[in-house]
């Protein structure tokens, strides 16, 4: 395995990548960076251009324009050098049906440049990491979808690459297997950069340091989820359960923040109601909501700030993009 003595600042860089098929633009001006050891989620609806971008980064597709570098090596100009630092698991994870798991992994290890005396060790380690030890002698043709995915991930880990590109790694797995893969991916943090393409938001949210959101072939948002939450969903709501009327609550919140909105969600019972209050982004009332309501004499059972999930961020980012496209 080739190893650079000096570690580059970036594990992976995509600079204005564009891919056109005739009149159809699959991706346009895709620019992002991934640092060493970072786990980044690549999100987008079907057809957003995630797989196209990953294939360009893996050297399996030439970009119409733009530049991709892996560990400082240009994918287009130095593909062999770039591929030495990279492992790529494509979406459908094609595997040769006529080989046994161990045979396949040994072949891949040799092709990836693992030293001959290390091949067996690396194969054993990868099979152990992916819980495949008991099935080393099984024909790949006889494996379930879940085990095929594990073989793909074991293959990606074989040569201890600097960067791993995983296209929908947990697709078709059962919940136990998904948890296992998540744990495995978390264990890679700090050791290798991982770019995970997925449309399963919960998976990305739990594993990734950062997310990149694609829509219609363009990046519509990227950053840490808390940054994106602040940027895309600045008006966070509060869930309040209090024994009062909507008019009373509205009067109190307007006194704290003139731009606030308030609506009744449902009756909880015994005079208690659930409300949703939305304050303006920089409102000082955010931190004093509970104390203000209590000091105004309201009977309050619960005040909770609603935390926007990745799903909300994703929807907000794609909605914003769709609106911009329409206008």
């Amino acid at each position: 395995m080739a190893d650079n003595v000096t570690q580059p600042e970036l594990a992976l860089e995509a600079n204005r990548l564009t891919k056109r098929y005739g009149a159809l633009t699959a991706i346009e001006d895709i620019t992002f960076k991934v640092g060493p050891g970072e786990i980044v989620g690549f999100l987008g609806p079907n057809g957003a251009g995630k797989s196209t971008t990953l294939r360009i980064l893996a050297g399996r597709l030439l970009a119409t324009s733009g530049r991709a570098t892996i560990w400082g090596e240009s994918v287009a100009l130095e593909p062999a050098k770039a591929k030495q630092h990279l492992a790529y698991m494509p979406e459908n994870n094609p595997l040769p049906e006529d080989l046994r798991i161990r045979e396949y992994l040994e072949l891949r290890a040799r092709l990836k440049g693992v030293d001959e005396d290390q091949v067996e060790l690396r194969v054993d380690q990868s099979m152990h990491d992916c819980d495949l030890q008991g099935r080393a002698g099984m024909l790949i043709a006889h494996l379930s979808k879940g085990f095929r995915q594990r073989v793909g991930i074991a293959d990606a880990l074989l040569a201890e690459p600097k960067i791993i590109l995983l296209d929908e790694p947990t697709i078709g797995l059962d919940p136990h297997q998904i948890l296992g893969i998540r744990d495995l991916l978390r264990s890679l943090r700090g050791k290798m950069a991982v770019l995970i393409s997925s449309h399963i938001l919960a998976e990305v949210e739990q594993v990734c340091d950062r997310v990149i959101i694609l829509n219609r072939g363009r990046i519509v948002a990227q950053g840490r989820t808390d940054e994106l939450r602040r940027d895309l969903l600045p008006s966070r709501g509060h869930r309040v359960v209090a024994a009062c009327t909507l008019a009373e609550l509205e009067r109190l919140t307007r006194a704290m923040d003139t731009q606030s909105t308030c609506r009744e969600v449902r009756m909880v019972g015994d005079g208690w109601c659930e409300f949703r209050i939305t304050l303006s982004p920089d409102s000082p009332a955010r931190d004093q909501l509970l104390s203000s309501l209590v000091s105004a004499g309201l009977r309050v059972r619960e005040v909770a700030e609603e935390q926007a999930g990745l799903e909300d961020i994703f929807l907000a980012a794609t909605r914003r993009d769709n609106r911009e496209v329409r206008t």
Partner: peptide
């Protein structure tokens, strides 16, 4: 047809 050729070319093998 099986897609394994593409997978082969993601390794450093030319």
């Amino acid at each position: 047809r099986a897609g394994t050729l593409g997978a082969l070319l993601t390794t450093p093998a030319s």
